[in-house]
Amino acid sequence: MNLMQLLITVVTLGGVYSLLSLALNLQLGYTGLINFGIVAYFAAGAYTYVILVQPAPGEFDSYVFGFGLPVWVGLIGAGLAGSVFALITGWPCLRLRGEYLALTTFAFAEVLGSVITNADAITNGTLGFTNLPQPLENLVAPQDYSKLLAAMIALIVIIVYLVIRRITASPYGTVLKAVRDDELAASLAGKRIQRLRLQSFVAGAFISGIAGAIYTWYTTVASPGLFSADITFTVFIILTLGGIGSNLGALIGAFILIGFQEVVRGLATNPVVAERVGSVVVALEGLMFLLVLRFFPGGAAEALTRLRFRLTAKRRGRSDAGQNPDSGTPVLAASGDGSVG
């Protein structure tokens, strides 16, 4: 595997995961919502996109819907599908806190997975959809398409990153953080907690839905097996590596983890090696995860902050470079218990 190929795959797949980790960061990092069912919104977006853009069914297909709409309609539809599913699931669940919310969202994701597998008429069952068209595929020669795809995905990631950064840096972002840190104090300040939590959840699901659509550009298939809980866990690992609460960290984490996976996969040149590498890579990921949690509990974002702190301290010639700057907020531990003094 050459370097260019590796880079293209990392940008493409890392881009898809970046969108998911940015979405989760909005929900978890900024609002304290432990969404353990993020794959559901991802899958809802992917399937909706496919159903909207694919041509009408042929003679041997068991699915009923295929609208042949343009790609951009499919993209917006994918985002909306994620949001609608978030509204339906979020309305009842968001009254729950912490691990209760995590379990409920996880259960909803399993339910959606089961629906996708069984609703043949809509999703074509376990077979799913194959040979999906890729956007702008006639624009370049087939061997160059992967570059175009990587560029399109990179562009979308940049746009989403800028939009999210704008939202989280605004007064609204500060309000979300206040809700995360102390719900009771925030509601006594007149903030409408339920509404803010739902907004953040739905906005995150919109981005997850778009990520789902884009994922089908890369895979050219949509089948139930692609949307397992593994995706959710990967996104949580990415966000932890990057630093919960940091948008830049979410991006860095995604590219580090996907980059690592792809490099290791690239090393496996024959099936025997591949099998061994496959089992070692999971252990190595686990080790990496533990080391990050031990030494940089705030993830890559914390490492960056420390580095910047050290550099500025050196420039000023101060001796306090040894002190740690503020680390990332331990969101998981900080989910309010709502008790009143």
């Binding site: 605004s170 007064p171 609204y172 500060t174 840190d181």
Partner: peptide, 30 residues
């Protein structure tokens, strides 16, 4: 009680009512 993830000024500022602290406000008038 307080908002542990915010700095001291933001702890106060977040309490001030602001028409812009809505979701759409954040997008268009941050």
């Amino acid at each position: 009680r307080g908002f542990s993830g915010l700095d001291v000024r933001n702890n106060v500022q977040v309490m001030l009512p602001d028409p812009r602290d809505s979701f759409l406000g954040a997008l268009f008038r941050p």
